[in-house]
Design a protein around this nucleic acid. Sequence first.
DNA 1: ATAAATGCAAACCTTTTGCACCCTA
DNA 2: TAGGGTGCAAAAGGTTTGCATTTAT
Lengths: 128, 128
Amino acid sequence: MYKISKQREWIYTYMLEHPGQHFSAEDIFAGLNEMGKTVSLATVYRNLKILQNEHRIGSLMLTSGKQVFDQTCRPHDHLICTHCHRVYDVDMTYDRSLERKAENQLQLPIESHSLILYGICADCLKER
Amino acid sequence: MYKISKQREWIYTYMLEHPGQHFSAEDIFAGLNEMGKTVSLATVYRNLKILQNEHRIGSLMLTSGKQVFDQTCRPHDHLICTHCHRVYDVDMTYDRSLERKAENQLQLPIESHSLILYGICADCLKER
DNA sequence: ATAAATGCAAACCTTTTGCACCCTA
DNA sequence: TAGGGTGCAAAAGGTTTGCATTTAT
């Protein structure tokens, strides 16, 4: 179905090579072009959507309404720093039993959940 | 500082009169105009922002990137139905101790959190 | 050869803003 | 009567789409 295009591989590789970061389409567009790998913004958007459909990457909608993409689509929580506004992946706190607990409390089937923690990240904490 | 304008009261009252619902600016714009209360969309947006700054209402960014507004800004969770995509307020599951638990696990100060549960709402469950 | 992918520009959607006019304290 | 507030239309973001061209299989 899909062909292997160099642009799609650039985009995916770019994400894997920056672990822990969360990118907007614009970030990836700018990052690749700086490396001399010319891609159009439309292609970045199209491929991010394809990679997501293939479950190779995940995404997150920020309260600003901007979408950012994640290297992985494995279930995990996020920490958003209230100082620098960076987004971090957090595996340690991820707790599937929240869903069972909610099911019991609400008496409704719960399939998944999304938890965002707001606090101060390690970097910002160090700087003070 | 702020003056009482009839438009602002219409908007706020409209939200209070539809408890449990979550509105986009467009929803409120359309709803009020249907009632013969003419408001411009720009005024709806401006006033929703003001009401939010005054902590009279809350808001939530959906994964679609659309912002919806909530009658209250008291901390609570949300249930999003994976069938009808309606958004529900959920107080029963809200658990501030998640923040203390995360603080211990991450060793970082956590100020707040946001939990969205994805499942089947009571209405959709009934229909099957 | 042909189905898929790309680049470009135009279109879209939601939200914000500038400005002239209006209204409320 | 002054400083908010409103409506309108234009602008601003971010994302998607149409179309002609290029590329992988």
